[in-house]
Simulated assay, not measured.
Amino acid sequence: MEIHAKTVLLTGSTGGIGLEISKALAAAGARLILTGRNLDRLNALKKNLVGEGHLAIAVDVASEDGVDKLVALAQTNQVDVLINNAGVNHLATHEQTSSGEITRMMTVNLCAPMILCSRLIPVLQNRTEAMIINVGSIMGSIGMAGSATYCASKFGLRGFTESLRRELADSNIRVVYFAPRMTSTAINSEQMVAMSQALGTAVDSPENVAEQLVSVIAKPGCIEQYLGWPEKLFVRINGLLPRVVDRALKKQLPTVLSYAR
């Protein structure tokens, strides 16, 4: 797809990755509908973007009212691309994760994208060509200690994206699963950052992730994109030989638990 002059609805626009995606898409000539929960931050972002006609709306994508507002705006502005980027994370052992944290992560990371897709498919089907990009994670393919709920939400998003892609295979809508690895953003708590440093985990910049996402839009045959090496290899190995990955990750368990507990 040629992104120039297309209208893109981006959730989580002011987050670390979302901010850079917004800049990259605007620079490529897209018209953006920016969403998030803080209107001041959204307006500040809109003001500094290249191009004209961008819109900002403060909504909670996890609420019915928020979804209704986004759908109405998408209909009025003839959205071509939906990017489900909003997400939350929390480092903790599962026994120490509250029911509220579990519900919030599953709602924002999985239920909200599913509902938005359901409501916006009729809008997207009216366009000559359209796209849905669900931003997942490498942890949507590899279960990690200390992140059980987050992994569950991203595993679910990956399965949903695969199913939806097959369901819409004869339509004008291309469905893509986009999976970054660890990225340097505010979604990561101090404990998570410290744990990653202790484990020697590679961390990407949000600018690099945004560049990769925009490049995916231009690739007609691309249906999924995993970022990072050797993370992409581990995804393959985990799918074929999960016990091998079990043994490798068990060596990291004491370090993970020291930060997750």
Score class of each variant (00 low, 15 high):
M1C: 07
M1K: 01
M1V: 02
I3L: 05
A5E: 14
K6E: 00
T7R: 01
T11R: 02
T11Q: 07
T11L: 07
S13N: 06
T14D: 12
T14V: 11
G15Y: 12
I17E: 07
L19I: 04
K23H: 11
A24S: 01
A26Q: 10
A27S: 07
A28I: 09
A30T: 00
R31M: 03
I33H: 11
T35S: 10
G36M: 06
R37H: 14
N38G: 03
D40A: 11
R41L: 03
N43D: 15
K46L: 03
N48Y: 03
V50F: 02
V50D: 12
V50L: 10
H54V: 05
A56I: 00
V59N: 02
V59D: 04
V67I: 15
D68V: 09
L70D: 09
V71F: 00
V71W: 06
A72S: 09
A72Y: 08
Q78Y: 11
V79F: 12
V79I: 11
D80I: 02
V81R: 01
V81M: 04
I83F: 03
N89L: 14
H94D: 15
E95Y: 03
E95K: 04
S99P: 04
E101F: 14
E101T: 14
I102F: 09
I102W: 14
M105R: 04
M106I: 15
N109F: 08
N109P: 04
L110H: 10
L110R: 07
A112F: 06
M114H: 06
I121F: 02
I121A: 14
I121W: 04
N126K: 14
R127L: 09
A130V: 02
I132K: 04
I132R: 11
V135D: 06
G136S: 08
S137Y: 05
I142V: 07
G143P: 08
A145F: 11
A145Y: 10
A148R: 04
A148T: 12
S153N: 08
K154E: 05
R158S: 12
F160M: 12
E162W: 07
R166W: 00
L168E: 13
N172K: 09
R174T: 05
V176I: 10
Y177I: 00
T183D: 07
S184W: 14
S189R: 10
V193L: 09
V193T: 03
S196P: 01
L199D: 10
T201L: 04
P206W: 13
E211Q: 07
L213G: 05
I217E: 05
C222T: 08
C222F: 03
E224Q: 13
Q225D: 15
L227N: 08
G228E: 09
W229L: 11
W229Q: 14
E231G: 06
F234Q: 13
R243D: 15
V244M: 07
K250C: 05
K250D: 15
K251P: 00
S258I: 11
